[in-house]
Write a protein that binds this DNA or RNA. Structure first.
Lengths: 183, 183
DNA sequence: CCTAGTTGTAATCCACTGATAACAAGCTTG
DNA sequence: CAAGCTTGTTATCAGTGGATTACAACTAGG
């Protein structure tokens, strides 16, 4: 098969991780086969396992990078303007790569698995704290902000929002309420 | 094994369905084995399959009943008082049986499966419409209402809310913002 | 250039899981 | 009570999917 390139384990690991985010985002923790991830990464399935030890550890790694990205996005938005509105605007960037937020959603869903629940609780709490810190929002303001994010994420999962979305009257109606009058 | 009782297929089907809601709510679509449902219902695994044809059809049936219950709860709340606050209050009843809302969440997560996505989109849209109709809320008001519900559901999935919840500072802080001043 | 470490694969395993088939037991209706 | 439908089980299958092992190929350093 085509030009085979040898990478260091760390580099290949990053590629596999990217593939894992795509795959887990699309099909969830239990619904994703390590084999799909391997094919996405252009690597054999056993090697995926060797690089990360376990499917669960790979999923956790995916959740971690996704949360890192979310936090980084929020931090950058706060640098430009430390308001909830600014962070809210940056949500569009996150939604652009649909899988990011979906991985987090699948993390919530898989919280029954103790090892996963631990990480998800920790990271979601961290995001809540970050939002409050960088914007100075009250607990209630931060809650409303995160609520909105959850609805957006869920609608993204239902494929009624974002690129390649299915257009439905109710979904369009809800979407319309997000657009600020001016921009 | 104890006193075996023979039920009609319809009756047994309802029992299995109740078990399915519990199991799917706890472990999700892909994470739940038909065998667990069978044991919960006190029935053999093949019989579960015969009653519903397919694991997927059983999951869809679970989603349908859950949505029926949610709609019924909202309708009753609206009968008492047709306001969003009233429906919001009735959310506590729904949260009392943790699995109900979690089944819906797992439905969102499994929306990648076309057959599941179709049902979930249809039912969630129906709930949105119902909320608007019985309360006269604007699209934006309804959106905020559903957003809040999504956050509650997600926190329930993370096990930081509801009965047998893990107590965490950030979660308690968010929870506190829900309590109305008076009651 | 040769030895040792690293990157990667192929082959295979084995446990699991949804589904099917064959059969047993119970109810009911003429 | 015999025939036939319904309820339910046991046995079993066939496919899958994560993980392990053994091996191949490349690379670097002395």
């Amino acid at each position: 098969m085509g030009a085979r390139v040898r990478l260091t384990a760390a580099e290949r690991g990053e590629e596999v991780l990217r593939a894992a985010v795509q795959a887990f985002g699309a099909s969830g923790y239990n619904g994703t086969k390590t084999d799909e991830i391997a094919r996405l990464a252009g690597v054999s399935q056993p090697y995926v396992i060797r690089l990360f030890g376990t499917k669960q550890q790979l999923f956790l790694a995916a959740v971690q990078t996704v949360c890192d990205t979310i936090e980084q996005t929020f931090r950058q938005a706060a640098e430009r303007e430390p308001t909830l509105a600014s962070l809210g605007h940056s949500y569009n960037e996150l939604m652009a790569e649909r899988e990011l937020l979906l991985v987090l959603l699948h993390g919530f869903s898989a919280s029954g698995e103790p090892a996963i629940g631990d990480v998800v609780r920790e990271r979601f709490g961290g995001i809540y704290r970050l939002v409050r810190e960088v914007t100075g929002a009250s607990p209630e303001e931060a809650r409303v902000f995160l609520s909105t994010g959850m609805l957006l994420t869920v609608m993204s999962a239902m494929q009624v929002l974002g690129p390649d979305a299915i257009s439905l009257p109710w979904a369009d109606e809800i979407s319309a309420t997000f657009h600020d009058p001016e921009d």
